[in-house]
Design a protein around this nucleic acid. Structure first.
Length: 969
RNA sequence: GCGAGGGUCGCCCAGCCAGGUCAAAGGCGCAGGGCUUAGGACCCUGUCUCGAAGGAGUUCGUGAGUUCAAAUCUCACCCCUCGCACCA
């Protein structure tokens, strides 16, 4: 064994050894199985330290479970379907400067090679080769025979089967849905295509259809608060805006004529309605006319307002002055104006406000109150916005609908929106209208984006309540780590709507019944864990064209007769049965471990599709979630940098150091921050571990009498083993390593300081087993010097209760406490000791102490009882004053003890004199001073009367400084 | 706005669910000492404040409350991170 650890040589060697022994190639056998999967990486770049975290956690689970005796399958594949790889190929092909720079500098791709990656195929080929190499060189225990890529023909067959099945089961339907759309590109706009308005979301407004009095024209008003329709007093139109009268043909061919702003017309063109301009209508033309509120047929006046923007909503606004500050302000602004130019001669100030929401702390008209409170002057005052927010928030959270709303009275404002919107649409007095939450949204090409309804889109109908019910059932039976993600999952199941599952662009499998569409990449990666079981057979002979629908039906669902399938596919019956048996054996997935970003999408779909396709016994059993990795505090970005690749990390620090660091720096959903300073420190710890192991092996002590310190070490070690096991079961890698490595290293410091040696060989063997799942290479290396075979294949250590020795631990604690006390005294007094005298406890105090302990355990601990008891002792009785004082102190102390501690103290009083004598040399060495131990009952030298401070488990201390007389004159 | 998670002694972070054993583990950083030709590595000590005797005081986002006792329980508030979709 080399004295210094050489990661490169050692790691490479063990990886080859594992590979040639094939110990990670999982085959069905009589053991209990454990199937763990990690989401396969998407290959639009090299693997980075973020992947490293997720995959390493997976590898630790796999290795841990393997050592626990499970037959573990840990497979890996590559995800390449979708658009990003196509996009990357285009960027490389046109030599986009940023892309070239980032992929050269951060992804570590040599420039000449990078420039050749100008089509998707080459990218997939290159990155999949690199990814496998990286995962091998960090020592993942993956069964590589099952590797596949999502564009493989056989995989496409699998996806085709799956979608046909979903279609048959009624989980796919056709519909339309709103997307961000660039009219210039004629394409949906993705996040990274947006120049401005990145944060804009699509919000659904209710379009309430007021009728123009005395005509069939519709004046649609867009609102986020449909309930306020009950309080409308008038409509607002901007007199200076040109509107248009349009013909609207709904998707069900109903026809209507609307008046809206020109901008609104532009937006409507992209909805599922067909619209055509009939004529222009000026704003002025509308003002002064009356409109009919469809909810209650009341007639309201159309008034002018400057705050109405043609860009928002329909350009026509309903006015609810009781609850909307803008409406109140605009109305107030009109009180003194002459509206005769609009043909309005009635007194606007006579318009009565209608209150429809009751909010605690407010009267009938919250908008009026807030506006006045803030001193907002008119509709152009910027504080009107603030007032609106306040009113809206208060009403939304604590408001309730009043009698004005008829049957909705008493309903909370926060719950009414969807209900009312749906009902109003149902009876034809309202429509849905989509709008961005922020304006404008600008595409990379400079064009202003719109919300477009994509028609004839294929959906997975996740909103189906029965489907959701099944997923809830599945979830409730699952093991989720950390546990707090359960509510997160529940909420997301609730929230999930139908999802478009096909696209026009990108790599992937065509929708079998509608070949124009390519199955979207999140939709084609939901149940592929089952494909790993199959893929082993595909790489060894089965051809894609043999993978018929009935083949999949049989091997995954056991539908149909094996003979028929054999005839149809020309796959031998025996092999079909074997595949089926493998599936039955390995499925379901025991744990899927993933980054937290996949919760609201992939992991959810993973659950949905499993419940849709597989019988309940094949539903997933567990999900584990981990956080992200940042780089020196900065977010990593595949396309912009910064980025640290897995391969560079391994090259710079070695596989085990990288593993150790990424596992010990954070756990669960915490984000890890990769800091070069800290990984250097981790490296030193690992080197120290290696050196210690090396020393133990090269200086095997001859076995002698086991001493207290040895029992102490082994006992402490059992706690570490127990903690590590417990932490690993819960996937707390940081806590596990804290115990399995750092705490043990610290224990060893004390052990060495106390001169311990004999327990080391015994400890070492178990210790390296304890660490094998985390840092397998170095552990194999050490193990190979002391035993045969792979340590990877040995059982994982469990705590050995027979080595737990509370007495030994108490003794060391006692010694540590004395050392600390002396050091503190020396520190405070600055005395350089010539001699230190330790006085043990007088017998009478021990007696009182034991009595108090006994009474505590009998639940009779109080001053009176203790005094009665102890006064029976003549020796105590002699200490008239001292005894009660001491007793009082002791009682307070003992009261706070747990019964367990008290019991330990009472049943096994440590013989302090003996320990002190045995430790004298140690103290002398540590403190560089003579140590003298005296019995407090018969002191020979105690000039400062320190001995009276002695208590059980706390000898009194007297430090004799240089120049003081150390002996009795 | 909705949902989830979080704010601990310079930094990262454990403890909180099951209140006392908590001035609060571990790591990093920093300071002093040992070792060494020197540096590195390693070991020891210190790192909230005060203290010439092992002690005391003040701390765990803010403010109240429950309790003999609160980092831990309750309530209110402030602040931070992430997700909110058709994108992997």
């Amino acid at each position: 064994m080399k004295p210094e650890y050489d990661p490169c040589e050692v790691e490479d060697r063990w990886q080859r050894e594992w590979d040639s022994a094939g110990i990670f190639q999982a085959e069905r056998d009589s053991r209990e199985k454990f199937f763990i999967t990690i989401p396969y990486p998407y290959l639009n770049g090299n693997l980075h330290v973020g992947h490293t975290r997720t995959f390493t956690i997976g590898d630790v689970i796999a290795r841990f479970k393997r050592m626990q005796g499970y037959n573990v399958l840990y497979p890996m594949g590559f995800h390449v379907t979708g658009t990003p790889i196509v996009g990357l190929a285009e960027l490389i092909a046109k030599k986009d400067p940023q892309t070239i720079d980032v992929y050269h500098r951060f992804h570590d791709i040599p420039m000449d090679l990078l420039l050749t990656l100008n089509n998707p195929l080459k990218i997939v080929e290159y990155f999949s080769r690199e990814a496998e190499q990286d995962m091998r060189s960090i020592g993942y225990s993956i069964d590589w025979r099952r590797r596949f890529t999502t564009t493989d023909d056989a995989y496409k067959k699998f996806i085709t089967w799956q979608f046909n099945l979903l279609h048959e089961l009624g989980f796919v339907s056709k519909g339309s849905h709103p997307v961000r759309w660039c009219p210039n590109d004629d394409n949906p706009v993705e996040d990274h295509d947006i120049l401005r308005g990145e944060d804009a979301t699509i919000v659904d407004f209710t379009l309430i259809k007021f009728g123009l009095h005395g005509s069939s024209l519709v004046l649609p008003c867009a609102t986020l608060r449909p309930e306020t329709v009950f309080g409308v007093t008038n409509l607002w139109v901007n007199p200076d805006v040109t509107h248009v009268q349009i013909e609207v043909v709904h998707s069900d061919e109903r026809r209507e004529e609307w008046v809206v702003s020109r901008d609104a017309y532009e937006k409507l063109r992209f909805t599922d309605k067909r619209v055509k301009i009939v004529r222009e209508v000026s704003g002025r033309e509308l003002i002064g006319k009356r409109a009919v509120n469809p909810i209650n047929d009341t007639s309201v006046l159309i008034l002018p307002a400057s705050f109405v923007s043609p860009e928002n909503g329909s350009g026509i606004v309903m006015s609810v002055p009781a609850h909307a500050p803008y409406d109140y302000l605009a109305l107030k602004d009109l009180y003194d104006s002459d509206l005769s130019e609009y043909g309005i001669f009635e007194d606007i100030s006579k318009i009565k406000f209608t209150s429809l929401i009751q909010v605690p702390g407010f009267g009938n008209f919250p908008a009026v109150e807030v506006t006045e409170e803030l001193g907002v002057t008119d509709q152009s005052d910027p504080r009107a916005e603030e007032a609106t927010k306040i009113v809206y928030r208060r009403e939304f959270h604590s408001g309730e609908l009043t009698e004005t709303t008829g049957k909705y009275a008493g309903i909370k404002v926060s719950r009414i929106k969807d209900v009312l919107m749906e009902e109003m649409i149902e009876i034809g007095i309202a429509d849905l209208f989509y709008e961005f939450s922020e304006q404008p949204v600008i595409c990379r090409c400079g064009t202003r984006c719109v919300v477009k309804m994509v028609k004839d889109q294929w959906f997975l109908t996740y909103s189906n309540p029965k489907w959701k019910e099944a997923v809830y059932t599945c979830l409730s039976g699952m093991n989720l780590l950390p546990p707090e993600i359960r509510t997160e999952f529940e909420n997301k199941i609730d929230w999930l709507k139908d999802k478009a599952c096909a696209r026009r662009r990108g790599l992937g499998t065509r929708l079998p019944w509608d070949q124009e569409w390519i199955i979207e990449s999140l939709a084609d990666s939901t149940i592929y864990m089952s494909y790993y079981i199959l893929s082993k057979f595909i790489t060894t002979g089965i051809k894609p064209e043999q993978l018929t629908e009935s083949f999949f039906d049989y091997v995954f669902l056991e539908i149909g007769s094996v003979e028929a399938v054999a005839r149809e596919t020309e796959i031998p019956v025996k092999m079909l049965e074997e595949i089926r048996a493998d599936h039955k054996y390995w499925y379901p997935v025991d744990i899927r471990s993933s980054g937290k970003d996949l919760i609201p999408n992939h992991l959810l779909f993973f659950l949905f599709h499993h419940t849709a396709i597989f019988p309940e016994e094949d539903w997933p059993r567990g999900i584990a979630i981990n956080g992200f990795v940042s780089l020196e505090g900065k977010k990593m970005s595949k396309s912009k940098g910064p980025l640290l690749t897995m391969k560079r990390a391994i090259k710079e620090y070695g596989a085990d150091v990288t593993r150790l660091y990424i596992l010990s720096t954070a756990e669960y959903t915490q984000d890890a921050d990769w800091r070069s300073g800290e990984i250097e420190a981790v490296k030193k710890h690992l080197e120290r571990f290696y050196r210690i192991a090396n020393n133990i092996i090269s200086t095997q002590e001859t076995i002698g009498e086991i001493e207290n310190i040895d029992r102490w070490l082994l006992s402490r070690f059992q706690h570490r083993v127990r903690e590590a096991n417990d932490a690993l079961e819960k996937l707390q890698t940081r806590r596990a390593l804290q115990n399995a490595l750092y705490m043990i290293l610290n224990d060893l410091r004390w052990y060495e300081r106390r001169g311990g040696k004999k327990a080391l060989p015994e400890l070492l063997h178990t210790w390296i087993q304890l660490l094998t799942p985390f840092i397998p290479h170095i552990c194999e290396e050490i193990h190979s010097k002391i035993a045969e075979g792979f340590i990877t294949e040995t059982p994982y250590p469990t705590p050995n209760p027979s080595q737990i020795d509370q007495d030994a631990e108490k003794r060391e604690e006692y010694i540590q406490k004395i050392l600390e006390d002396i050091e503190e005294i020396l520190n405070v007094t600055k005395i350089t000791p010539q001699k230190i005298i330790l006085y043990t406890t007088p017998r009478w105090k021990k007696s009182v102490y034991q009595t108090a302990l006994r009474l505590k355990l009998q639940e009779k601990l109080d001053m009176k009882t203790v005094m009665n008891e102890i006064m029976k002792d003549t020796e105590v009785k002699k200490r008239g004053k001292e005894a009660p004082k001491y007793t009082q102190k002791i009682i307070a102390e003992i009261k706070n003890m747990t019964n367990e501690t008290a019991d330990l103290q009472a049943s096994n009083p440590i013989t302090e004199e003996e320990i002190l004598k045995g430790t004298r040399k140690f103290f002398e060495k540590e403190l560089n001073s003579k140590i003298e131990i005296q019995d407090a009952d018969k002191t020979t030298h105690d000039p400062q009367h320190k001995s009276k401070h002695a208590e059980p488990m706390r000898p009194a201390i007297y430090v004799v400084g240089r120049g003081e007389t150390a002996e009795e004159e």
